[in-house]
Amino acid sequence: MSDRGNEKSGIDPARRRFLTDTLRTVVGVGLVALTLGVYQRQARALPATTIRPPGAGEEEDFQSKCIRCGLCVRDCPYDTLKLAELGDEVALGTPYFEARSVPCEMCDDIPCVKACPTGALDPALTKIGEARMGLAVVVDQEACIAFQGLRCEVCFNVCPVRGDAITLNYQHNTRSGKHAFFIPVVHSNACTGCGKCEKACILEEAAIKVFPIALAKGMLGKHYRLGWEQKARAGEALVSPDTPHEYNLPDGMSYEHGGRGLIINEEAGGAAAPAPQPFSSNPLDTLNRKGGL
């Protein structure tokens, strides 16, 4: 930049330099900030096999509170929790675990939550059974041997919330015709996402896996109403009144749908007159009956 050039433009060289420097700094820092912003959006996408410690809540909220100090990792007595290193897909320095390697042992005193200085792991969580780290999903029904009609039930049996988080649904085995399928079914109202089922699954690649809840849960459209729930709440059908169905039955008979079924002779005045039976007790009567069978 020659002096003559500056004279031409009429700008004081010191001022020009100041403006150039400031502009360059602002643009540079702006680019860094923008890159950082984009990078952190990516870092928010949690890989499917990555489970946060108990009490972590939603990923967005967690990442605004976690200061990446690793105190939860230090206080985890089973070395379940790890701190994401540079190169891992998880946001750098944040705690996570992978159920298939080391699942959460669900300590009663929840030391990881107690260790958290910022409340990123919610201190209100005092009962580990209420933790929702993730949700187990039977992801591969083709590989799970229960769906082949084989007895396994390992996931059901290792579950720390046994009988609540995973139940067995008995279904008829149509292949053999005489056996039952023992189908594992996960219930989100009890599953803590500890991952013991995924760890214990006997397959080479687990057929039941724990995913972050946001990934595992479907959601019914908010406008949906389930008729029977609405009916139970209101005490009557809301759309149109229930009309009793009328059946065309012989005298002395009625039918209660969804209840007792066929009711014979209940209102005919008791035992006074035995009702005429549609079929005689004597088989000869049928044989001797006139007309076709």
């Binding site: 950082l36 990078y39 990442q63 605004s64 200061i67 990446r68 990792v73 701190l83 540079l86 750098l92």
Partner: peptide, 27 residues
Amino acid sequence: ISGSVAWELINPVSMVFRGLVFGMGLA
């Protein structure tokens, strides 16, 4: 803007110390 402690994703100062104590990765 992002509602996240974003700088700590790339902060070399905390990254290196945390790396030394917890595991470096590519730090």
